[in-house]
Design a protein around this nucleic acid. Structure first.
Lengths: 226, 226
DNA sequence: TTTGAGCGTCATCAGGTGGTAACAACGGAG
DNA sequence: CTCCGTTGTTACCACCTGATGACGCTCAAA
């Protein structure tokens, strides 16, 4: 069997070395990055089976890396490494799509057990192309079409639609949507979500006046019908 | 807020008390057992959404409880509570089907975060849908239907129904209902509860004149029959 | 520098929501 | 049987929410 590839994004060289050593000893293939930007880039190009992600990073924060990984439609498990006392951060990270976290200093045995468990659990396959009615969303190609005709979406529109496809069938609050699609950078009103939904509807709904794909959930937010 | 049921299997009364307190404060419903046999029995009958399981138990060991839960085909997440230095046991536990573990003494915040994460992840697979007679309430999608036909509820009506499903079988005062559904913000008469109940009945009762789901409790308030 | 796309904000508007009030129905006490 | 407090029901309408067009800011490309 081909060894599983793990990407470690960690700026502390000592910790990185220890991790690499242990992971390789356990039979994994390891790649690493020392800052957020490089890490995100490698996650995109290497498509590792799992990402070990330090929260405190130069460049992009761990949160931002995690969010962008999900925005890009990458579905591998993400384990966050946090220092003691960063518990509040952890909850946010889990909301952004992280699967687990480990608090430094950690026992290497514990970490290895968690990694093994996540990889085992994750061996279900997630399709790259999603069909909703006559709509086709190709996450790999980042392309949307209906009956063969491509629909041009702006980056934000696509990000929103991609998020919807991942949470399809569930009622989503505007806050959840903002957090996942806009990220922490933006100081943005939740009216912006409304606006983005309107324009997205105008492009992907057969009849934008009576939306069938994106339902409004009054007082809450929206629900995508998968 | 979610009405999820958590089963705690723990023989140390002090720890049990603390867990129960914190879990309830976080909005979970809690049941507990003091030994392995009783715990397994409750897991089978109550079908909780998540099990907190001490490793060292009188009667059946935690490992054995975990194994038998999986043998019975129960799929809820299991979190093991282990003492320091039981790391070797942990790997065994994970192999037996546990989803996570926490080492005592643990930070309560960390434990709560893990629990929340597991429940969230698990909901993806198994939607939390409640059936009451022919009525179906999908809390994730925020949707209500009977025999496949969707029932359109206004936000307030849905909130009221959702609250009822969480407190089903108990008589609720109008004040309790106002508190939970309207929140402290609103300066509202308790006649508003009556009115909301009436409209809700007209939508979800088979025969609104002889309500079977929402019973009036004279001088007190209402009771939802689950 | 110009230009244009993307996107966040604002103002406006339509429609829905839900609180109040007013009255009817009910039921228990005396 | 009558009275009175409680609950059911309906009508009304003030207020809020979400949809949408317009505007302007920013950034990158030409």
């Amino acid at each position: 069997m081909k060894p599983e590839l793990i990407l470690v994004i960690e700026d502390d060289a000592a910790i990185l070395f220890g991790l690499r050593d242990n992971l390789q000893r356990a039979g994994y293939e390891v790649r690493s990055a020392g800052d957020g930007h490089q890490g995100l880039e490698l996650a995109r190009t290497l498509r590792p089976h799992l990402v070990l992600l330090d929260l405190m990073l130069p460049g992009l924060s761990g949160h931002e890396v995690c969010r962008r990984i999900r925005v890009d439609g990458l579905e591998m498990p993400v384990v966050m490494l946090t220092a003691l006392g960063e518990e509040a951060q952890v909850v946010r990270g889990l909301n952004l799509g992280a699967d687990d976290y480990v608090t430094k200093p950690f026992g290497i045995g514990e970490l290895m057990a968690r990694i093994a468990a996540l990889l085992r659990r994750h061996r279900r396959v997630i399709p790259d192309v999603v069909h909703i009615g006559s709509l086709e969303v190709d996450r790999g190609a980042r392309r949307v079409s209906r009956k063969g005709a491509e629909i041009e979406l702006t980056p934000k529109e696509y990000g929103l639609l991609e998020f919807f496809t991942r949470k399809s069938g569930r009622a989503l609050t505007r806050e959840q949507i903002l957090d996942a699609v806009w990220g922490d950078s933006a100081a943005v009103t939740d009216r912006s979500v409304d606006r983005a939904v309107t324009t997205l509807r105008s492009k992907i709904e057969e009849n934008p006046n009576r939306p069938s794909l994106i339902q409004t959930v009054p007082q809450v937010g929206y629900r995508f019908e998968g």
